[in-house]
């Protein structure tokens, strides 16, 4: 079975380490915050100027001056800090964020990512995504392995305009966890009950499959 959005987020959360500063993108990455292992101290960075993002507020504590990158009202945890957008992207571009999780339309075997623009469709802008992929060393891309018609989103070469060139090293899809290196996707783990053959058939880019591919453990 392919992973649900929640399971995908849950598996990504296992990549967190105690003391990490983490930036979570919009969509599935946001869900990762719900699965931070208990007892682990992790600070969430929000690109609009907050380090130490907390959960959603109550009706009583809601504050128009405290939002996240998705413009949702949030709270700040003890130990949080506020700062300008320039400072926020100094953290991001300067490589100070330990883990970045974001979505994508396509990734390719060179580690390039396309996530912001579909020609012919409306262009909404890249927001902070280009800065995030350029600045972070430890990035996990979360995405569906293939589109609804079964077309692979893991390609030999991205077809859509890029968000970043050669910057992605790890991809977590609803079918598999992969590393990108030496011009290929390397299969690390498969979703429970998903066969290597299915992953192979839905991966258009070169896929390297080791002898043993463990199932993900939750």
């Amino acid at each position: 079975m392919a992973l649900s959005r929640e399971q995908l987020a849950q598996r990504v959360a296992q990549e967190m380490q105690d003391g990490f500063y983490v930036n979570l993108g919009i969509g599935i990455p946001t869900l990762v915050a719900n699965y931070i292992p208990q007892g682990m101290s992790v600070m969430l960075q929000s690109e609009n100027g907050l380090l130490g993002m907390g959960e959603f507020p109550t009706e009583e504590t809601i504050d128009a001056d405290l939002i996240n990158a998705g413009k949702q009202t949030v709270t700040a945890v003890d130990g949080a800090s506020f700062f300008s957008s320039a400072e926020s992207f100094a953290m991001i571009r300067g490589g100070h964020v330990d883990l970045t999780v974001l979505g994508a339309f396509e990734v390719d075997v060179n580690g390039s990512i396309a996530s912001w623009m579909i020609p012919g469709k409306l262009i909404k802008g890249m927001g902070g995504a280009m800065d995030l992929v350029a600045g972070a060393d430890n990035i996990i891309v979360t995405m569906m392995h293939a589109d609804k018609k079964g077309n692979s989103k893991l390609l030999p070469l991205c077809e859509l305009p890029l968000t970043g060139y050669g910057c992605i090293k790890r991809v977590m899809t609803d079918l598999a966890f992969m590393e990108i290196k030496d011009g290929a996707f390397h299969l690390l783990e498969r979703a429970p009950g998903v066969s290597v053959e299915e992953i192979q058939s839905k991966t258009a880019g070169k896929l390297v499959v080791p002898e043993h591919v463990p199932e993900m453990v939750f």
Partner: peptide, 28 residues
């Protein structure tokens, strides 16, 4: 890009005419 926009404004106010950034390299 948001970080580039923020830095363009910061640099403008600080008297720096331009700067190099990795953001957007290899993209449109």
């Amino acid at each position: 890009p948001q970080g580039t926009l923020a830095e363009k404004i910061r640099a403008g106010g600080a008297g720096i005419p331009a700067f190099f950034t990795a953001t957007g390299y290899g993209t449109p």
